[in-house]
Design a protein around this nucleic acid. Structure first.
Lengths: 110, 110
DNA sequence: GCGTTACATCGTAATATTACGATATTGAAG
DNA sequence: CTTCAATATCGTAATATTACGATGTAACGC
């Protein structure tokens, strides 16, 4: 046990859940916010900004990169990370599709 | 280690991350979708709908209840779950606030 | 009362995540 | 070529999550 039974869910459910999951950690939320705020790419100011070890930041960046939400470009000896607009918009659309069902919600438990 | 360092993040970041986190599992996405689709409350048709053990479903429902997204009302010998509109709207607002930053995103890595 | 149904909770095994130090790797500077 | 700075990756300890069987509990029908 302890292993998520992905087989029993739809692709959409698995995909949506894994998008939510990657954002389900404060460090990754903070990283994304930082990248968005700086508007431009940052490298590892992140290590100084957040109080986490370089290895830890690198690991979180990797997870964000794996979903495609951010992309990294090598620039000299550092790496420039930024939002991947295409994936970001897809992610946004997926979330909106999920949350737009809300209009139909009728609370039935008084 | 292995323990998330919540102290180093803002309350907003921690809150947002924990909202994302609870939705970061396909079973909980499926449960929410089912509750929304049925429009009305359901009890544990969920156990039959999804192929998970009753204990597992109950555990997932508890996590959803803890965030306040759903609420359960005892109705005879069964429990009626439904979306808690207030929390749902707050959640939606939190997500929207996060995703609306997107307009400022400029991809700087060609 | 007794059995049944619909849950919740407990205990626990399997697995995943988080964090970090240590150790590559790669490019720039000297 | 050597050194340093910026990162990635590896190994691993601490902790968390997922799933389930077993067991508790409360409400109903009899």
């Amino acid at each position: 046990m302890g292993l998520t039974k992905s087989e029993i869910f739809t692709d959409d459910q698995n995909k949506l859940a894994s998008l939510f999951k990657v954002l389900g950690h404060p460090a990754r939320v903070a990283i994304l916010q930082y990248i968005i705020d700086q508007k431009a790419c940052i490298c590892n100011d992140l290590v100084e900004e957040l109080g986490l070890a370089q290895a830890t930041i690198s690991q979180h960046l990797k997870e964000l990169k794996n979903t495609g939400i951010i992309q990294g470009t090598i620039e000299g000896k550092s790496v420039c990370y930024c939002i991947d607009e295409k994936t970001w918009k897809q992610t946004q659309a997926a979330f909106n599709a999920f949350f737009n069902q809300e209009v139909k919600v009728i609370s039935c438990c008084p």
